[in-house]
Design a protein around this nucleic acid. Sequence first.
RNA 1: GGCGGCGUGCCCAAGUGGUUAAGGGGAAGGUCUGCAAAACCUUUAUUCAGCGGUUCGAAUCCGCUCGCCGCCUCCA
Length: 480
Amino acid sequence: MLTDTMSRGLKALEPVEPGHLKFYSCGPTVYNLAHIGNFRTFITADLVVRTAEALGWKVSYVSNITDVGHLTQDDVADATGEDKMAAALRAKGQEFANVWDLARFYADAFIDDWRKLNLREPLVRPRATEHMREQIQAVDQLVKSGHAYATPSGVYFRLSSFPEHGKLSGNVDKEQLQVGVRDVVVDDNKEHPGDFALWKQDDKHLMQWFSPWGWGFPGWHIECSAMAMKYLGETLDLHAGGEDLVFPHHESEIAQSECLTGKTFSNHWIHTRFLVVDGEKMSKSKGNFYTVRDLVEDRGQDPIALRFALMATPYNKPLNFTMQSLSDAGKNVERFRECRRVAESTLDRPGSADISQELDRIYGEALDAMCDDLNTSVALARALEGTGVIFRDQSRLGGESSKIALEYLDRIEELLGICPSSQVEERSFEAELELDMILRSELKAAKKFDEADAIRLKWLDQGVELRDTPEGTIWKLVQS
RNA sequence: GGCGGCGUGCCCAAGUGGUUAAGGGGAAGGUCUGCAAAACCUUUAUUCAGCGGUUCGAAUCCGCUCGCCGCCUCCA
């Protein structure tokens, strides 16, 4: 069951081809580093994929990268005709040779952050600039079928040819919409102010392609229609994006696509609610604007903890992100890591813990929660309950039961992506640390505890915590 | 003006008509430990923004009030 924006309620997600989900998720425009709010949306898509896979479905997952600069970013029509990518280039001109270079840089950074957050790779990650032919053909077809018309400055979609426009957002009554204040496509030749651009001509635009209407560039909405249909066919099972995309982006995608094919564009729509920081909308001027890099690289936060924090509230409610919520999430992620460590370190000894049924039950409940409109709050609670079962029985853990515990953690990782198997952490001081750990255990054996504690404190100052466990001393990095 | 969401303990948050209001963080006490850390155990909301109504029964449904927030042609 999944909320469907179109019907405004819960609806079973039923792929046209049973057991094979065709899923398109709108990606970012790469004129800047994506922020954590963007990633909340991509995590939602990731969880759809993971849940469908856990149900044994095949998933064809497509998520685009918009690497064409589109409309202007100012509240009023921008006389310079400058788009977001051009504006970014102007601001960071020293760093990039041209808009193409800039787009490539931010697209790479985006994919890098994507991987850090343990997001599933899509089947295809199409880029707008690499699908220009498809877009031009789509526009051409719309013109030929009377759904679009050309003016001296561009090609526009004829809204009056698609009376259903507005069915997704509820913005049906066009008279109620604030008219044209931010309609940057100022063109007296438009038939209706709401007609949106499919193709635009503008000499100043930094990316240009040749088309039947002369040199120009595509409108924002056409890329998703063209790319979704190219890879997934004329009707999608599910289309996702941020709540801001409901109108106008998805509304326009529907109009274009359905006029093109005469078929339903997507049978199901989900939209992730916005994230706010400290109760307020993120904005650079408020100083509460975070990118993955800000948190992970500059502040040394664990990317998996960030992922956990971003899924702590279900996607269909606004999420309030705070540094407190991130540190809470970090504690939970550490718990999963510790749980995995316990299971791994007891693998070689005999054990008698009988946890198989209980863990199966808990996993089943976590999966049920995900199937209930991606209720991540409940799914995470259940996942955590499983670690409790493992820890409670840790003295009797061993052999087969340790293996069962690890399998549980692996299944939770597949479903929720919050307990990846630990990678080897590398630090340059490793040799010195090894020596100190040996020295410290000798001191402990000789009951010279003051000196042993001094070693522990010394490393703690450097962000390394030494812990004595039944299996010997271990170390881990701690947040400074 | 149009469309929509939210208000649950110190913090985050699940729960949308019916036994004791999930879970996490924090705090307090205890077990274990040379000490730490981790883990485990115990405690931490007679109450769900306020008021009124429907009902045998409401955090959950209805109405009003207060407060907060999002979208309405840049945005995930």
